[in-house]
């Protein structure tokens, strides 16, 4: 059923492209409020002198970026898109026009912000100097049962260090999860390769590819302070956050307590014999920006992607409008 008394609104592709262009710049330049607040808490509690110095320099860097309208980090990551459609949303030209608009916005912003042209062919190292190429930028989709809006989120995640995947088994248990979590944080935390303090995302379960996707989205698309709706998973998020900050390692791998700004876990049903796990770290330049384009053409910018929802995490065959995670 269309909303708005049966009037079907169509979102203009021009609005999509203009919004996408604004999002590209916002993500590159403005540190999201939730990450910033988390880092300020680290600054207040960090006792390591070198780690404190690093955090202070980063806080100054965010200010400089905003003042100058300059990207906050010279490695501007690999831009990608997350698109969420309300079930009643219609976009002029359909999904193909949407993808074209997002690719254009990515290419134009690479020149205008400017961003570093990071995307190259894996073998020939061909660089189009616009962050577009084969399967780049990635565009992922999700849907919500109601609404005539489209949410656009861009994430420009750094790409080289801080992520890992491992097939664990039920017998490895929660201890196995703790251990792989520590392995990844210690391995990539030394010398600050992961550019911590980071938002650590953990994918548990799913198929192997889903496991990686869930962990990455947990780090990049949930805000600092958010908790999984299953209270036991929420408790594990708290526990792992605390464990990470007890390694003794701060920013750049110097002695300190600032390793994890927050820890987010997403779970998906997996093969009965396994317990795959992935770990991802969203860095000191946690670049993300979101906008909702309503059917009537209004655009509202925000920093919370609101990506994960009860609908997305649904467990039953039919969607009944309510999630029952705690009963699992």
């Amino acid at each position: 059923m269309p909303l708005n008394n049966g009037v079907v609104h169509v979102i203009s592709i021009d609005t999509v492209q203009k919004t996408a262009a604004t999002l590209m710049a916002k993500a590159a330049i403005e540190i999201p409020d939730d990450y910033l607040a988390g880092l300020r808490r680290c600054a207040d509690t960090e006792t390591g002198d070198l780690s404190s110095f690093v955090i202070q320099a980063m806080l100054e860097n965010y200010e400089a970026a905003k003042e100058d309208r300059r990207a906050m980090c010279g490695d501007t990551g690999v831009p990608r898109w997350y698109v969420k459609y309300g079930n009643e949303a219609r976009v002029e030209g359909g999904p193909v026009a949407m993808e074209a608009a997002l690719r254009r916005a990515t290419a134009h912003a690479t020149h205008s912000v400017p961003l570093r042209p990071n995307r190259v062919h894996p073998l020939w190292r061909t660089d189009h100097n616009n962050n577009c190429g084969i399967f780049a930028p990635e565009i992922d989709y999700a849907f919500e049962p109601e609404g005539d809006w489209v949410d656009l989120t861009t994430v420009h995640k750094g790409g080289l260090f801080g992520s890992d995947y491992r097939m664990l088994f039920p017998g490895d248990g929660i201890d196995g999860i703790r251990r792989f979590f520590l392995d990844t944080l210690i391995g990539f935390g030394k010398r600050g390769l992961a550019c911590q303090p980071a938002i650590v995302g953990i994918g548990l379960g799913g198929s192997k590819d889903t496991c990686m996707v869930l962990g990455k989205q947990a780090s990049c698309l949930r805000v600092v302070g958010s908790r999984h709706p299953d209270p036991k998973i929420a408790a594990l998020e708290e526990e792992l956050k605390d464990l990470g900050n007890r390694i003794g390692m701060g920013a750049m791998g110097f002695i300190g307590t600032s390793m994890v700004i927050d820890c987010h876990i997403e779970v998906g049903y997996c093969h009965t014999g396994g317990m795959p796990m992935s770990v991802h770290m969203f860095c000191l330049s946690s670049r993300r920006a979101t906008a909702r384009i309503y059917g009537d053409g209004r655009v509202a910018f925000r920093t919370d992607p609101e990506w994960f929802s009860d609908y997305m995490r649904r467990a039953d065959v039919e969607w009944t409008g309510r999630q029952t995670l705690a009963a699992e």
Partner: peptide, 14 residues
């Protein structure tokens, strides 16, 4: 010399 952060890209740009 190591950069700090990483990275203080905007400060270095200045």
């Amino acid at each position: 010399l190591t950069t700090v952060g990483y990275g203080t890209g905007a400060l270095l740009g200045r």
